[in-house]
Computed example of a mutant assay.
Amino acid sequence: MIDFLNPYIHSESLSIKIFQCTYFLLGILVIIGFFSRISAILLLILQVSLIKSSYLFSYGVDFFTSMSLMYIALMPSDDYFSLRGYLWRIKEKSDLTPFRRAFQIHICIAYFVSGFEKIIGYNWRNGESVWKAIHLIGFTNDFKINLDFLGNHPWIFVAAGWFTIIVELFYPLFINIHKTRTVWLYLTIALHLGIALMLNLYFFSAVMITWNITNYYFEDKKGSLQTV
């Protein structure tokens, strides 16, 4: 982005400020629903340029953020509870069902592939991956939770690994069955809350919890979108 702006703005610090302010402004427009689709497209361009410029610091959430912006750009989401809807007095709201179904298929594939990848290896089945995650060099839990006691209870790492595998691998099945949907939704949210609290991955957990709530929390018994 700095290279792109360099011919017009001969100041690296000013280019960064312009990028930050534009990114922030577009994010606000998406949140309040003022021409969200156009704002999401422009924000997606900035998001991708940011990822490509700092790929060494990417750990997955960046791609989920880009995908989230893609869905906002595709969906007529600013028909509902939006500033545009309020100012333009939109009465005939677009049907979000086809977009949500595509979104649901996407999230089911994402969890299944993640769970399948974990179960075919041994690092998650024996708890090694969980142990490594909380023992990364320089890692410090923000809540100052002393995890030394876990060394005397290795079964906790194994249980955490299998819990993650089961929730992800069977997500497409149980999240789409009405009787088990609520339970699986809460289990998935609990998984991401644990990731946030134990590994400090707040943004990643927030994005994934938002994906789950958006797709399945408002489903009624017939699998249709509940009206508010």
Rank of each mutant, 00 (worst) to 15 (best):
F203W: 12
L150M: 12
L29K: 06
N200L: 08
Q20E: 14
T214E: 04
Y80R: 03
F143Q: 02
F81V: 04
S54N: 15
N212M: 13
D142C: 11
S49M: 14
S11M: 04
E128H: 11
F143G: 04
Y86K: 14
F170D: 01
S129W: 11
W124H: 00
F157H: 05
G194Q: 03
D79R: 05
L42T: 06
W124G: 04
M75K: 05
D148W: 07
T227N: 13
L25Y: 12
Q47V: 05
A206Q: 06
G138E: 00
G194K: 02
T214W: 11
F63T: 09
L185F: 12
S13A: 15
I175R: 01
A159P: 00
D148Y: 05
D148P: 00
E117C: 08
I166C: 07
G115D: 04
A133P: 04
V228L: 14
E128C: 02
A110K: 02
D78Y: 04
F63A: 04
T210Y: 15
I156Y: 12
I119L: 04
V228S: 09
S58C: 12
N146W: 06
S66D: 05
V183K: 07
Y217D: 06
F24D: 01
Q20D: 13
F204R: 09
Y216W: 15
I38H: 08
S66C: 14
F81Y: 11
K179Q: 15
A73K: 09
G60Y: 01
K132N: 10
G27A: 03
T97R: 13
F139R: 00
L197G: 12
L199G: 01
K132H: 11
L150N: 06
L191D: 02
L44F: 13
L42C: 12
Q104K: 10
L136W: 07
F64T: 00
N215T: 14
S68F: 15
V158Y: 10
L29A: 06
K222R: 11
R84L: 02
F174V: 08
G127H: 02
G194N: 11
Y171C: 05
V167C: 05
L69P: 03
I134V: 10
D142Y: 15
H10P: 00
I177V: 13
F99Q: 03
I165C: 03
R84N: 03
L43M: 11
V113A: 14
Y186A: 13
N146S: 08
I107E: 06
F204I: 05
L46T: 03
E92D: 14
R181H: 08
K221Y: 10
P154S: 05
M1S: 12
R37Y: 10
I28N: 04
Y171F: 15
H178I: 13
V61R: 07
I105W: 15
L44T: 09
F103C: 00
K52R: 14
E128R: 10
M1H: 14
G85P: 01
W155H: 10
W184C: 03
D3C: 11
F218Y: 12
